[in-house]
């Protein structure tokens, strides 16, 4: 067993444990924390696959920014224990379990049967995909225009959000 395989198995277990934690915790805050665990494991997986940038972004954006947002919302809503009725949605089990099994079957099928396009395997072979350097160069050359257009998009979204949220004086 190579070191990579060991690392993979360790983090795969962490991801799974985090995922199960999200489901079984009764307190939504604990569920959110379990999700962070799962995200951190996922980030390690990305790094293992040579996508360092994606791994870092996974931690910064998901485990950092988005989870803070989740926790904020949960704490602001502040749902009391007696208002939670986990039993009311029992029937969801009968929908969720077959869907989950279907997803597992699908992933299994993709992993064993589907061939990846040659262009993508080439990128992996040369080891140029996913590094910070490659992404930086890509953003400032090939993808310069979409990158800049995205900045206009974000500016526009900020202006729009401000306009929609602004309350006028009576």
């Amino acid at each position: 067993m190579t070191i990579q395989q060991i690392v993979f198995i360790v983090f795969a277990l962490i991801i799974t444990a985090g995922g199960v934690g999200v489901l079984v915790q009764r307190n939504p805050l604990y569920s959110a924390f379990s999700l962070i665990l799962s995200f951190i494991g996922l980030a390690a997986m990305y790094i293992l696959m040579g996508a360092q940038f994606l791994g870092v972004i996974q931690i910064v954006v998901y485990a950092g920014a988005i989870m803070v947002l989740f926790v904020f919302v949960i704490m602001l809503l502040n749902v009391r224990d007696d208002e939670l009725h986990p039993d009311r949605h029992k029937y969801l089990l009968y929908i969720g379990v077959p869907l989950g099994l279907g997803l597992i079957a699908e992933v299994f099928y993709v992993v064993t049967r589907v061939q990846i396009a040659p262009a993508i395997t080439d990128m992996h072979a040369t080891g140029t995909v996913g590094t910070v350097e490659r992404i930086g160069v890509g953003l400032l050359t090939e993808y310069l225009l979409p990158f800049e257009a995205t900045s206009v998009l974000i500016l526009m979204a900020v202006i729009g959000a401000m306009h929609l949220a602004k309350r006028e004086k009576e």
């Binding site: 979409p146 257009a149 995205t150 206009v152 998009l153 526009m156 979204a157 202006i159 729009g160 959000a161 306009h163 929609l164």
Partner: peptide, 12 residues
């Protein structure tokens, strides 16, 4: 990106 730039403006 062009599509989203257009669509988000129109949503607002």
């Amino acid at each position: 990106v062009g599509l989203e730039l257009m669509a988000l403006s129109v949503y607002v």
